[in-house]
Amino acid sequence: MPDCNKNFESEIKEGKNLRNVKCKYCSSLILTPSTGTFTSFEFNLPLMKQSKVNDSNPDTENVSLFWAVNEMYTFQNVGFSNTVGDNKYLTCADCEAGPIGFHDIPSKKSYVALSRVQHV
C-alpha cells in the first residue's frame, strides 16, 4: 500500500498540513505549514521510478492522500510538467524528483501526494 503513511493523521492540524512539506530526496521546501488542505480521493499517479521507458503507458499506483493547493503561487518551490490530458505533474524544483503530485488544469487546483514527500 503506497499510502501506508501510518501517522498521516498526526500531520493534519485543522485540516491543513502541520509541518513543512519537503522533497524526500533533496529537502527542497515545497509547502510551508498550513498552506495545503488535506483531501482524500483516488488517483492513479505514475511511479517515480519506472521499470522501463514507456511514455504512453507509465507504471502507476493508486494514491489517495493529498494536500490540496488552490493557488499555484502558494508553493514555495515546485516544477510543473508539460500537459498530459487535463493534468500537469508536479516535481521537485531542485532535483526534479517526481511526480510528487499533479495539477488539474480545469479547476486550477494542485494536489501533492503525502506519500511522495516528507513532513519536517
Binding site: 519506472q50 514555495q76 518551490n77 510543473f80 508539460n82 532535483c95
Partner: peptide, 22 residues
C-alpha cells in the same frame, strides 16, 4: 540533470513546462 539529481524517466520524458521558485 545533475548527476546527483534524482531524475526519473517519466518526468524527463514529458518535460518541464515551468517552475515556481521562492
Amino acid at each position: 540533470f545533475s548527476d546527483d539529481a534524482f531524475t526519473t524517466t517519466f518526468i524527463s520524458t514529458i518535460g518541464i513546462d515551468f517552475k515556481i521558485k521562492t
